[in-house]
Design a protein around this nucleic acid. Sequence first.
DNA 1: ATGGTTTTTACTGCGTC
DNA 2: GACGCGGTAAAAACCAT
Length: 320
Amino acid sequence: MRGIQAPSTTNETQRTANATAHQRCSECDDRLIVDQRQGERVCVGCGLVVEEDLIDPGPEWRAFNSEENEQRSRVGSPRTVLLHDKGMSSKIDWQNRDAHGNTLSTSQREKMQRLRTWDERFRTRDAKSRNLKHALGEIDRMASALELPGTVRETASVVYRQALDNDLLRGRSIEGVSTAVLYAAARQAQLPRTLDEVAAVSRVDELELKRAYRYVVRELDLEIQPADPESYVARIAGELDITNEAVYRARELLSIAKEQGILSGKSPVGLAAAAVYAGGLLTDGNDVTQARVSEVSEMSEVTIRKRYRELLEAAGVTDN
DNA sequence: ATGGTTTTTACTGCGTC
DNA sequence: GACGCGGTAAAAACCAT
């Protein structure tokens, strides 16, 4: 590899730890965290990049210790590249480094010393890098299968990287964590998929997904609010033969219930399923049965029964 | 680990087609 | 009789403590 020498002294190795800035996101009011290797301040909740040019000397070298970031951030200013998609990962900036020297000679040096320091850990670095690529590939694949938009994948990637940087991968499988992270990202983006749905396109079973998910959420302090039942309505209704009117009523029922605060603690999917069922009952031309709804929503008929009664009651519909 | 809550499983009874 | 629905009891799963 390179034959560059650099002064060796360093003090801020430990700054690597995640320094979280406690500020709030302007969009969703979630916590912001600093993604150092990216030189960005990112919202935990929505993935919004609040500030991207945090390139002070600090981040500059920092970009270095995290493998893949290195590639990206090395090139000029850490741009808006929230996330590279897989394609970008092929960039290799190693050579550039010296070449760039003229411009950022001092920081360059620091960089170099960093390199020395980290050289020791090269092997693990490398492992991490592969790890990340693998994971991002998986995330991409699963996101496609779940029809999740690019924004979600980006968020997932951000979170995954955080997980990686915080050494959360120790005992777990890459698959498991990628899946968990994607699941989390989907929820954050208000495009929740159920655990079953996600597990279905993943290579890990639901149990492992669940474990990994909890773990990641806890360790990273992700703040994920319960899914909105309404976001499931369309998909449940879509698999049923249901009029638009019924779907409308379903939503209506949910929002009424929401105002009354009846929803807390109940499974969002169950509520959505119940609402769809109720919507079908209240409108003409729908032959929904509890069995059908239960089938497509993966909820038991019992829960649907319970929920839809509650919904009707909350809405003040005289049951019939 | 424990306890409280929700969901599931399994079963039963009822009315209707 | 089969089907859709409703209720129930016990078990399982979940969550915070």
